[in-house]
């Protein structure tokens, strides 16, 4: 099996061709795994910098607003997903003041990986916004300690007809910085996950931001045309990639 190892490893970052002693892992692989897990654990607890992101995004010429969920800190956020799905009253008031005839609200959140929001958020937005020239956009929202469904009260408060949230996915061993995008047509508190479409693994070594932006824009256009989003909206934005 040794000669096939380079062949397998060439095509995937999965832990293929890692050898064996008897049927078990060689010690070097065992330690490599432990190192990756240690790094992922550290990433889960890394701090989010909404102010820094706001400066970065405003520099690109977009107004930015901060919105808070009802989760006050990371420990609570991890154990109380219900709080991460609800807006705190101050934020609700602030967003309601920005209420207007918007096609789309876009939210950037740390989710379970602040690293992902910082690394992939700005390049993804840079690729996505030019594809949305026919859309009237609400101010960009930055939301710490948010769960996916926070896109509903945010979009609703802003009066947007669709809501898109970009948030850090839970860190994998090899990918502590992967971003996920969820869109919903008709954001209103109480929407189920079946009404959302998801584009996941957004990172250079997964689905690169430019490709992710095209897929998201396609889904947004289709949901606007069809008047709904979710499991009945199938992503047929392009043919599957054959080869790497």
């Amino acid at each position: 099996m040794s000669d096939i190892v380079p062949t397998l490893r060439k095509w995937t970052s999965a832990r293929v061709g890692i050898g064996r002693c008897g049927g078990s892992l060689p010690h070097r692989e065992l330690l490599d795994f432990r190192l990756s897990h240690a790094r992922a654990r550290d990433a889960v607890h890394q701090a989010f910098d909404p102010a820094g992101l706001a400066v970065e995004l405003e520099a690109a010429g977009r107004p930015v607003l901060l919105a808070r969920s009802q989760a006050p800190d990371r420990a609570t956020y991890l154990q109380r997903p219900d709080l991460g799905r609800q807006l705190d009253p101050d934020s609700l008031a602030r967003l309601s003041a920005a209420r207007a005839d918007h096609d789309l609200a876009i939210i950037l959140a740390d989710g379970l990986s602040a690293t992902a929001a910082h690394r992939q958020g700005p390049p993804l937005l840079a690729a996505l916004l030019p594809l949305l020239e026919t859309w009237s956009l609400a101010p960009l929202i930055i939301a710490p300690f948010a769960r996916v469904a926070l896109q509903d009260p945010i979009g609703h408060a802003l009066g947007a007809r669709a809501s898109l949230i970009l948030l850090g996915e839970r860190p994998g061993l090899g990918a502590p910085d992967s971003l996920g995008a969820y869109l919903v047509h008709g954001p209103v508190p109480g929407n189920t996950d079946a009404m959302r479409n998801c584009v996941s693994n957004i990172r250079p070594a997964g689905l690169p931001p430019a490709a992710a932006a095209r897929r998201i824009a396609w889904l947004l256009e289709q949901s606007r045309r069809l008047g709904f989003s979710g499991v009945d909206l199938k992503d047929r934005s392009d043919a599957p990639r054959i080869g790497a």
Binding site: I4, T7, L8, R9, K10, W11, T12, S13, A14, V16, G17, A175, S178, N201, A205, G206, L207, P240, R241, I242, G243, A244
Partner: peptide, 14 residues
């Protein structure tokens, strides 16, 4: 992560 057919094939063979 990107449903790459060769990447999947490599893990499958492994």
């Amino acid at each position: 992560p990107s449903d790459d057919l060769k990447g999947i094939a490599a893990s499958m063979l492994d």
